Computed example of a mutant assay.
Amino acid sequence: MSTVRSVKSLIPLLDRVLIQRVKSEAKTASGILLPESSVKELNEGKVLAVGPGQLGKDGQRLPMGVQKGDRVLIPSYGGSPVEVGDDVYHVFRDSEIIAKINE
């Protein structure tokens, strides 16, 4: 796992996307606080940075499927974890992202 000082210093290359996983609520609907050990990470994340895109056979950049600020559905496993302080972010390829979540 890589360690970086600032998340702003991470700039994805080619078709890679920097994602912060969303954690589930630490409190139930009725207000009961859950212990940290029972709170799991969801398969949902927020896109923090996007690379310029993969080069096609003709040398032109292929458009990315997501952009900064999008909420996305990501696989449970995979991606490259990157530590920034106490937080862990993940770098996925654009093709590994399962879906965009529109509200």
Rank of each mutant, 00 (worst) to 15 (best):
Pro12Thr: 02
Arg71Tyr: 14
Phe92Pro: 10
Met1Pro: 08
Gly69Phe: 08
Leu33Trp: 12
Tyr77Ser: 13
Val7Ile: 14
Glu96His: 07
Gln67Lys: 15
Lys100Ser: 06
Ala29Arg: 14
Gly79Ala: 04
His90Asp: 02
Gln60Thr: 11
Gln20Cys: 02
Val4Trp: 03
Leu42Asp: 02
Gly31Ile: 00
Leu18Lys: 04
Lys100Asn: 06
Leu42His: 00
Gly69Thr: 09
Gly53Trp: 07
Val7Trp: 02
Gly69Leu: 13
Val72Phe: 10
Leu33Gln: 09
Gln60Lys: 14
Gly69Cys: 04
Arg61Gln: 02
Lys23His: 13
Ile98Leu: 15
Met64Val: 05
Gly56Val: 04
Tyr89Cys: 04
Tyr89Ser: 03
Gly51Phe: 07
Val17Gln: 06
Val50Ala: 08
Gly53Ile: 10
Asp70Trp: 14
Val22Phe: 08
Asp15Phe: 02
Gly65Ser: 15
Gln20Arg: 14
Arg61Asn: 00
Arg61Met: 08
Asn102Leu: 15
Asn102Met: 13
Ser80Asn: 08
Glu96Ser: 11
Asp86Ile: 10
Arg71Val: 12
Tyr89Pro: 03
Leu10Thr: 01
Pro75His: 12
Glu25Thr: 14
Pro12Gly: 03
Lys40Tyr: 07
Glu103Asp: 12
Ile98Trp: 11
Gln54Cys: 08
Asp70Met: 12
Ser38Gly: 00
Ala26Asn: 14
Gln67Arg: 14
Arg93Phe: 10
Tyr89Met: 09
Gln20Phe: 06
Arg21Gly: 05
Pro12Trp: 03
Asp58Asn: 15
Ser95Trp: 11
Lys68Phe: 09
Gly45Asp: 00
Leu62Ser: 02
His90Thr: 10
Gly59Asn: 01
Asn102Trp: 08
Ile74Met: 08
